[in-house]
Simulated assay, not measured.
Amino acid sequence: MLFEKLLRPALYRLNGNDAETVHERTVRLLSLLPADPPLLRGIYAEDDPATVFGLRFPNRVGLAAGMDKDGRALHAWPALGFGFVEVGTVTRLAQPGNPKPRLFTLAGNDAVINRMGFNNSGADALAARLAARGKPAVPLGISIGKSKVVPLDEAVEDYRYSLRTLYPHADYFAVNVSSPNTPGLRELQDRAALAELLGELRRTSAELAGDREPTPLLVKVAPDLTDSALAELLEVCDEHGVAGLIATNTTLSREGLTGQEAVLGKETGGLSGRPLTARAREVVGFVHRQTGGRLPVIGVGGILSGADARRMLDAGASLVQVYTGFALKGPGLVREINRTLGGWR
């Protein structure tokens, strides 16, 4: 409540109501904290271990991709209570992303619209940072995507480059084929394109792993897929030994926006937050039923309370991630979710 009532409004006033500036300065500030910050130790951290796709997580709440794209504040997130962290989406080539403004907060709807466009420093820069500073004290996922200037028919090699470059550092990889902000990217969710991409990434992963178990590959899906398209995607994932699914990315739908902020719904980009809550949970439930619970799912989308997270697990998710909820409500949300999920089975 303190964050929502006082700190967040103050941050926006100080930064001219520019959501991206608030985001950037928050990450920059967190990047200055030492590993295991003593002021935060024990305040937010919660333990409730779970083992999913062969990895042990200290708790079930993760930071979704997009918050810390370039891995600048990796050692701060565990101290805020996160049981795992996903960085990126990172691309082979460094890119500035789409023109500004490109991030819009709809606080009255507990929502955000973004059209960031995979702005990041590139796979090589992230690998160098991880080699120099090390990984966080919790599992690290790396979300990889297609560079904007790379044609779709060259996408496989683009993804493979990022996989090879970052392979020594990731505990799992999220294959992002579902962002609405890179032209044509969602076409990679189609059967033939996805089968080619996953086949090559699996082969590359096995080669890099050698005698070790390959690093788990997860696929991040859009909430806008029909049930038949999603069922087809799940068949491809099963054929290529995908370790899990991340459901879901942001949506192109504007259903659920209310009040004066509905005008902002005309902005292009992906919508996240409360309007996505029900649909994300529906997708998780569909995946769970379709696969008989065999495919682990990270549930993400519209989680703004401990109850939301609990319902996501009840729908079939094994883990949850937050982004918009964290941005709007602060670290207290992570603690609330951890306490709500404590001992969940």
Rank of each mutant, 00 (worst) to 15 (best):
A222M: 03
R25L: 14
V52I: 15
R335Q: 14
G269V: 08
L40V: 00
R212N: 12
R202S: 14
V221K: 07
F53P: 02
Q95V: 02
E207F: 08
D314P: 01
A94D: 08
G342C: 14
L32T: 10
L319W: 06
Y44T: 02
H240M: 09
R8G: 00
E232T: 15
P296Y: 07
N338F: 05
G141E: 02
L55D: 05
S228F: 05
R202L: 11
A307G: 04
A243F: 07
K148V: 06
T248R: 07
R41C: 03
A127K: 09
M312H: 00
A170Q: 05
V236R: 13
D224M: 05
V219R: 12
R311C: 04
P101Q: 03
V219F: 09
S305G: 06
T268I: 12
L152I: 13
A222K: 07
V283M: 12
L130Y: 13
S162L: 06
N249E: 10
L11Q: 06
S305N: 10
V263Q: 14
K135A: 15
A107W: 03
A125H: 13
A128L: 12
L245F: 09
A127L: 12
I246K: 13
V90Y: 00
F3H: 14
E213P: 06
L14A: 15
G134R: 09
S228M: 01
A128S: 15
F104C: 05
E4L: 13
F173Q: 09
L295I: 14
V177H: 07
D190L: 00
R289S: 15
E267N: 12
N109F: 07
N181T: 02
S162Y: 08
L341M: 12
E239S: 10
M312I: 01
E232C: 10
G302E: 04
G302Y: 01
Y159A: 06
G97E: 04
A262H: 11
R72W: 03
L140N: 11
T340V: 13
T226N: 03
R56D: 11
L201K: 08
T258D: 04
R92I: 03
H169S: 03
A229C: 04
A76F: 08
L32P: 03
V242M: 09
L257I: 07
A309F: 08
L197C: 06
A278G: 11
R164Q: 13
V22H: 05
A65S: 14
K220Q: 10
R160N: 00
M1F: 13
A76R: 12
D36G: 06
E282K: 13
N15A: 13
I298F: 04
K329I: 01
G42W: 00
A262Y: 07
V320Y: 02
G141F: 01
V287C: 15
V27N: 02
L163A: 05
R345Y: 10
D68Q: 03
L93T: 05
I113Y: 07
L29Y: 11
V177G: 02
V27P: 04
R72Q: 14
K329G: 01
A50H: 09
G62F: 05
V283S: 06
R60K: 13
